[in-house]
Nucleic acid binder design. Sequence first.
DNA 1: GCTTGCTCCTCTAGTCGCTGGAGGAAGTAG
DNA 2: CTACTTCCTCCAGCGACTAGAGGAGCAAGC
Lengths: 140, 140
Amino acid sequence: MKSIAIGELSRRAAVKVPTIRFYEERGLLPTPVRTEGNRRTYGEGDVRTLRFIRHARELGFEIEDIRTLLDLAGHPDRPCGEADAIARKHLADIDDRIARLTGLRREMQAMVEQCSGGDVGECRIIEVLADHGECLSDRH
Amino acid sequence: MKSIAIGELSRRAAVKVPTIRFYEERGLLPTPVRTEGNRRTYGEGDVRTLRFIRHARELGFEIEDIRTLLDLAGHPDRPCGEADAIARKHLADIDDRIARLTGLRREMQAMVEQCSGGDVGECRIIEVLADHGECLSDRH
DNA sequence: GCTTGCTCCTCTAGTCGCTGGAGGAAGTAG
DNA sequence: CTACTTCCTCCAGCGACTAGAGGAGCAAGC
């Protein structure tokens, strides 16, 4: 079984080298065996694990959640309720962020549309920023 | 003209005291006059400035942009093209984030719906995370 | 005048998830 | 043997705060 250097792991999982070391430090990747010359060596399992991590990160999961998900992935016999809960919570978070951003978008759109292109003195953008009362909503 | 202490400024602009000091350090708020006992003193103008900053932050503008917007707000005779550009760029950023989050939301929704509630071994959530090929899109 | 309790001061470090660089050692190809 | 690449550790920085330590100032009641 041939061993993989950190650079190759980096290419194969599309994760930068310092990031791999960072994940190791944070306990997401197991402490790798070192060569005589003190270099980290990895195997195919590490490629899979790292891809899992990267994928979860791309989907916006936090490191802590990924730690739990990785733990679960290593125990196929356990019930998947916890994974489900994490995913559902994450989905709710995303919905929340979309809702807030959509609200902001409306405000920004209104601001930009009202700018007449004159001087700052008449600029609605500056005016709206200066006075919260001008806003469409006060929830932000 | 009565002067305002940092605590009162904090309450009136709804910005925490350490955050006020942070804004001062970053050059968004002018260096305040100090009392004999070395305490910062503020005026009504500072309340307005701080509210402007907070409002812009709530709308998601970055500190650097706010610095420019504040500078513009202090010069009503200048053309407002720069403010308009900042606002438009910010709007585009928001659109971008909404689009990406909406994509993620679809993925997450699909993941959560496919979880049958059994063991981790059959869990679609873990499976999808482990294999990017399962995704609806590969842009993330 | 003294004590109590609040507000304020500076400085430092921590959050999150990386990213980049310095300075040096190890491995590899010609 | 040299040149080049990859790797090592350690440290600093990003953005926008937030929190805490340890101390000093200040107002009010006694």
